[in-house]
Design a protein around this nucleic acid. Sequence first.
DNA 1: GAAAATTTTGAGAATGATTATCAATATCTA
DNA 2: TAGATATTGATAATCATTCTCAAAATTTTC
Lengths: 146, 146
Amino acid sequence: MKAEWKKQFNRFNKRMTPCRQAIIDIFEEKRKHLSAEEVYILLRKKRRKVGMATVYRNLDLLSQMGLLHRLNFGDGKEHYEMARISPAKHHHHLVCTRCGKAVDYSELVGEEHEFLNRLEKKLGDKYDFSIQSHQIYFYGLCKDCR
Amino acid sequence: MKAEWKKQFNRFNKRMTPCRQAIIDIFEEKRKHLSAEEVYILLRKKRRKVGMATVYRNLDLLSQMGLLHRLNFGDGKEHYEMARISPAKHHHHLVCTRCGKAVDYSELVGEEHEFLNRLEKKLGDKYDFSIQSHQIYFYGLCKDCR
DNA sequence: GAAAATTTTGAGAATGATTATCAATATCTA
DNA sequence: TAGATATTGATAATCATTCTCAAAATTTTC
Ligand SMILES: [Mn+2]
Ligand SMILES: [Mn+2]
Ligand SMILES: [Zn+2]
Ligand SMILES: [Zn+2]
């Protein structure tokens, strides 16, 4: 995986810095959705001086490079998660509209993915879009908020 | 349709005010995605004094009441569109990650909806969620941004 | 390996969208 | 109509994110 990433950094003419490595490490360790603020706090435990701006810059970069997925759960801030490239562990989200909890699901991904691919092709052709990714969100109330 | 909405307002113990009516009119006339700012500007053409806060409050209320759908296209602000209750004209979105353009699509909605209903039931049971809605976003580059 | 060129970073200010406050108005209820 | 309740507009406040810019780190060139 390290190798894959190095390649990505080269492709983008970007340097793999200690700060960026640390951010990647955090996502590998935590394996969950993190906001910029949360990453910042975790990062400060590893390194003395970190600027909020650097966190935002790097989360943005890593997202553009495809190493992170940027998610919006409707709570006013962006969330990020590791893009599990290999093996491609595809999943989507169930979001509680009251408490904001976001749960991963990967049920029916096989069937889902087949369907979405078909749709993607159709839409790309019809609307002249080169589609690169998709997100599905189910909104509702979790059992604690019902 | 007016009747449906009146009912909704009663259910929520809310009043149908001139301001709210004007906002609904705007969405009926424009029939497209509008940000709070855009609604505010259009609203000022109809009524002298309007506060930004009132616009936000009402967009929020109308969304909770199910008359509007709140959409996030990743450009840092929320967008709203009329929820076409009857006939239920279901659609989702294709979003250009460069220019932010958002295109409606309703291809395969029949098949899609059947599939999503099945998935929704499965997920609701398994994760103990009462699912109320969903959104699908396809991200990519439109023809002008390629 | 040192100097020059390039990239990245941290600190803080600035921005922009959204929310909170609160007194004045409008609407509903009895 | 009086009293209760809901809504509004103006403004300030908040919060996430972006900008600015000089210092530090890294890479490239000689
Ligand atoms: Mn996830
Ligand atoms: Mn739409
Ligand atoms: Zn919840
Ligand atoms: Zn575009």
